[in-house]
Design a protein around this nucleic acid. Structure first.
Lengths: 344, 344
DNA sequence: CTGAAAGCGCTTACAG
DNA sequence: CTGAAAGCGCTTACAG
């Protein structure tokens, strides 16, 4: 009873545009023009309206605005591996850039309740959706979004803009570095299957670069399991590696999290990094820099990529800008986890 | 030109409730009742309407629903330290529980563009907001949200429900464990200032427990710097620690990230964990388990807390449920980063 | 430069 | 059990 009365009071206190207009002695349309920064309002009138807005503590209702403009000013980012900090780190950059242009961004963690979340994405009429997943969406979902006019990023070249990384140089540099510091037996632990491995060029480049130098043994191990989590995959692959290729001297992993898992397994087996084995990750997640040993990895400029994604999406939404395909040159970041092969 | 035509076509294709109603030969109100699961619709009519919905691929427009119900079915989580995985880990649990009840949740990373993001929170009429920050909101923000009827969690006892952790037992257990395995010189590196240190009971309990045992030296170091990030603070405090208290044998940190930073500094100074110094974190972030050495820490049940938060918020929104204050008993998780003091 | 009016896509009493 | 109607809070042509 008490709660209901309170609720009603607070409802009454929610001030709407009508009251602002009445109080300011103008029409609702004019208030709208002021709020949306239209230049057609006389400065003194504009200031007056602004004052009334402040006085009344008027807060516009986005839902109403969304309805009439059929824009949500809302961008989604679809991720799958929620435990991998990398996704958050670039999502954060997307958000930071988007908010400056008046867009909010939400993360959709599609590793659980996917159908419910896809429903939310459609029903909220998201203006844009960025794909950070490598796995598939259900039949028709993408088509439905397209029909709604949702701007799609990183789905595929047909669907919309693509922002990808070029790992070739970095991979080449790291392979050569390993060779130069004396390693002759190296392995790659891939969180993808064989076709995924070469999809972003890392695999192709790894095979190419290792082929060009007289390594003694080069192996690639695959474990493509969406639901295991990168760290688990890293551990599993490392176990296989030690069984099959016990005298390996240096290991590449698909990402930093997998490298951390790999490190764990190596350490359990009494192998020390980098004394016994050199270790290389990818992504340069924030934590890699301060791990002990700090992790050698491959980095892209997350801030730049995040900003580019946000700005491109918004340009496409607002100005019908063309879709783009931007490739970022990844860089090798050399840290403690690799070391020269001791002469024996 | 071409783009405009396409846009118009796709706009035309966006099917609304009216078309569903017409096609099904019922009124819009009935379609609404079907969609919202009202029991008052005759089963065969309901099935028929459902079929038409599927056929037309009708997707309800949340913005319209929000406007008329003055509910957004949208919950926010305010975080500050975006680089700390802990927040994401419990946010994910909140989200998982919320989506099952039809609510979406969005993260608001308030370490940047705070005013813009607070504006978004108000204008989107979020139904609920969970606070994960320890720093302050601008004057009036909380009051404004309250006035809007936003359900507030973890702000303060007056403002709404509280979900807190009780670290007392875990802290006591860890202090005693350190003593029992031979440590006599211990320190606490606090990411809070002196008053914050005892706010969640960890500080009080640390002082109490260390006072009850014949330790040789016990020190607490403070560094309260919102913008540094826990890992940096851990590093800075560890430097101070080594200068001031070089023969320290065991160290507590405010959280796992700070402990990782501390480990980094210790390692740079040639100190090994746990051989030379035992190290303890707090939060049990996912990565702590697989670090090398794995991190001794203090854990709460993130899933349970996340579920409780989501369900309480939604119960408050929908059923006017009373606010609650739930305290979770944290548990010590003993791993490799602590070890017996070697006899010398 | 400004106001009156129509309409965005829903939900919810209210009759019947 | 169902339909007609009002209205949620905005924006946007359109007159003037």
């Amino acid at each position: 009873m008490r709660a209901n009365i309170l609720k009603q009071i607070s409802e009454d206190m929610m001030v709407t545009r009508r009251e602002v207009a009445r109080m300011a002695g103008v029409s609702e349309g004019t208030v709208s023009n002021v709020i949306n920064g239209k230049t057609c309002v006389k400065p003194e009138k504009r200031d007056h309206v602004m004052n009334v807005i402040r006085q009344l503590k008027y807060i516009p209702n986005q839902a109403a605005r969304n309805l009439v403009t059929s824009r949500s000013s809302h961008i989604g980012i679809a991720i799958y591996e929620t435990t991998n900090p990398y996704h958050m780190e670039v999502a954060r950059m997307v958000e930071e850039a988007a908010i400056k242009r008046g867009y909010m961004v939400s993360l959709f963690m599609l590793d659980n309740n996917m159908p419910d979340k896809l429903k939310v994405i459609s029903e909220r009429r998201l203006d844009g959706l960025v794909n950070f997943m490598t796995n598939l969406y259900p039949e028709g979902f993408i088509a439905d979004l397209k029909e709604q006019g949702t701007v799609l990023v990183n789905f595929d070249d047909d669907a919309g803009s693509m922002f990808t990384q070029n790992y070739m140089n970095a991979t080449k540099e790291l392979v050569e570095t390993l060779y130069n510091i004396g390693h002759r037996k190296i392995a790659y632990l891939s969180n993808f299957d064989e076709s995924g491995f070469s999809a972003d060029g890392r695999g192709r480049q790894f095979i190419k670069s290792t082929g060009e130098l007289p390594f003694e043994r080069v192996e690639i191990y695959y474990n493509h399991d969406f639901d295991a989590g990168s760290d688990r995959i890293g551990q599993t692959l490392a176990k296989k590696l030690l069984e099959d290729f016990g005298d390996v001297e240096a290991v590449f992993c698909t990402n930093d999290l997998a490298a951390i898992g790999c490190l764990r397994t190596l350490s359990d087996a009494g192998k020390r990094v980098p004394r016994d084995i050199s270790l290389i990750g990818c992504d340069d997640i924030n934590i890699s820099r301060i791990l002990t040993p700090s992790l050698t990895t491959i980095a892209i400029d997350k801030r730049r990529q995040g900003e580019d994604i946000a700005n491109n999406i918004i340009d496409m939404i607002e100005k019908n800008a063309p879709k783009v395909h931007i490739e970022y040159l990844a860089k090798a970041v050399i840290r403690e986890s690799i070391a020269p092969r001791p002469k024996n």
